Amino acid sequence: MKLGVYNAILHDRSLPEALSIISGLGLTGIELNSGGFLPPAHIPTFDDILISDTARDDFLGIFEGTGVGIAGLNCNGNPLHPNARIGDKHAEDIRRSIRLAERLGQHRVVTMSGLPGGEPGALHTNWIVNAWNSDALDVLDYQWGIAAGFWREIDRLAADHDVKVALELHPQNIVFNPADIRKLVELTGATNVGVELDASHLFWQQMDPVAVIRDLGPLVFHAAAKDVRVNPETAALYGVLDNRFRRLSSDEPRTNLGGDEWANEWPKPAAWDFVALGKGHDVAYWTEFLRALYEVDPDILVNIEHEDVELGRIEGLEVASAVLLRADAALAASLRR
């Protein structure tokens, strides 16, 4: 399998340093952030690459001899946000990422489906968690109309540039499970919009990523290797939709999500946590995860995403890569039998 790292955790280092770290882990790919919630820290000549062959060739030259190649672009954000300062920017980041992907010889752009407000003139997003009442279905009808128009346009653009757009099945987005991606494809007639299979968000929703991969089949374009640990004692009291988040003040380190929106502090103790591979599910599970992906596409890109706050940046990548490489070796051995 083609195994790499999503580079957000290495934004504190230069691109050459990041490539050296990834190579040292025994991995061969780097998924580059290209906008959305995070800036394209490792693509400082983004604008130049779009118009200059020299700038493009200079950038690609950084990878020569490193043993690490570009393994897709990532511009996770909310292109449907009702606040134009956020939504319009993130939408344009997706368009620019598609164009950049073609310039760099890439065929995968990872992002999120986005989430609109609940009605015309809304200022805030509205995620319908459980549409048991008719009013909630009215909101969803409005949101799907907005989503279909946007993603129909993006699908055409992606097809024109020979790029597949892989949507992370992420809660607080209109597309967060297999039924949703099928609905989006049906509404838009999309041929170049599918799924980035990030196992972590499926785990905490009590879904089985292996079953989801086999259910979606060719709609799975790309994958992220990230684990989740459910903490039974806390989950038993608060459930996995626990909302005990804390707003961080302006004098605390915090991540901007666009406009004046910021990431909040995780509940303490948490019902569930993002953890490095192996801390939630063992090597045997990740072997079957890779097997299911292999059945869809033997050349699919699988990149580690590190968000385990219990481990340092490099330490977390070391733990995760060791598990992923063992799983890959186990898969390879089983295929030779």
Results as ranks from 00 to 15, higher is better:
I21S: 08
S23C: 12
H42I: 01
F46L: 08
D53L: 05
D57F: 11
L60E: 06
L60C: 08
G61F: 13
G69K: 10
N74Y: 07
C75H: 04
N78F: 02
A84V: 15
D88V: 14
I94C: 04
R96A: 12
T111A: 10
S113T: 11
G117R: 07
G118N: 07
H124A: 14
N130E: 11
S134Q: 10
V163G: 05
P178C: 00
A179Y: 13
G194S: 03
L197T: 00
S200L: 03
L202V: 01
Q205F: 05
Q206M: 13
M207R: 15
M207N: 13
V212A: 06
R214N: 12
D215Q: 11
A223N: 08
A224E: 14
A224K: 14
V228A: 06
E233D: 15
Y238A: 07
V240W: 12
R247E: 07
N264H: 05
K268E: 15
A271G: 11
D273Q: 15
G278R: 15
G280C: 03
G280H: 04
V283P: 06
R291Q: 05
N303A: 08
E307H: 12
D308T: 08
D308N: 08
R313G: 08
V323Q: 08
L324H: 09
L325Q: 05
A327L: 10
